[in-house]
Amino acid sequence: MFEARLMNATILKKILDAVKDLLNEGTFDCSDSGIQLQAMDNSHVSLVSLTLRSDSFDKFRCDRNLSMGMNLGTMAKILKCANNDDTVTIKAQDNADTVTFMFESQNHEKVSDYEMKLMNLDQEHLGIPDTDYSCVVRMPSMEFARICRDLAQFSESMVICCTKEGVKFSASGDLGSANVKLAQTSNVDKEEEAVIIEMQEPVTLTFACRYLNAFTKATPLCNQVQLSMSADVPLVVEYRISDLGHIRYYLAPKIEE
């Protein structure tokens, strides 16, 4: 038996919004420790990794490890049927071929349940090594989303150059060029507005704007985003999900042919 409950549907809706542009389907691996989803987008360019810890759910029971392949478009449709302040319970029997989403209104007067067929997805699971990154940038997630949106108008690719003074985002194409420089915040009054850089070595890397823009669909999940970069390895874009866990996106830098 698997059962996981969240007092508020909003967070699950936001999580679905954060992945559904990149992934059509995904396998949710459920265990004692929580729920994990790892999947590559259709073109195998980026990797999405979602971790939700069991101890942060309002109720969590997982008697046997369970892998549930879900169509994320269908899951998003089902979650649209929940009000933001509804309690959501996800339930599945061991070895079941369906999963049930139950929504309960705050006054307990409306209870709805939606059953969804599970899929057998033959997805590869990738092992990701622990990496010490040359540069780790923490910045407001809205600012990052804005920069990705603005610079994508100029080019398919964006250069991110990080030094200890600051981080520079650049794009250039037929229309012209754009540069946005953010200095490291000197006085951190409000942590969510700060730009903080931890640098071992400066890095300059080029990334596809299309994917960066897809990652920023996670912006409503967290005020801050963390960018971890090293030469010649994938960038990690991480959004923390309050107490519940995190979503990480991996994207390899473009390379000279």
Binding site: V45, H125, L126, G127, A252, E256
Partner: peptide, 14 residues
């Protein structure tokens, strides 16, 4: 010209 590598080439199949 820069090309976009496949993410799979950076990690191993677990």
């Amino acid at each position: 010209i820069k090309t976009q590598p496949d993410i799979k080439q950076y990690y191993w199949i677990a």
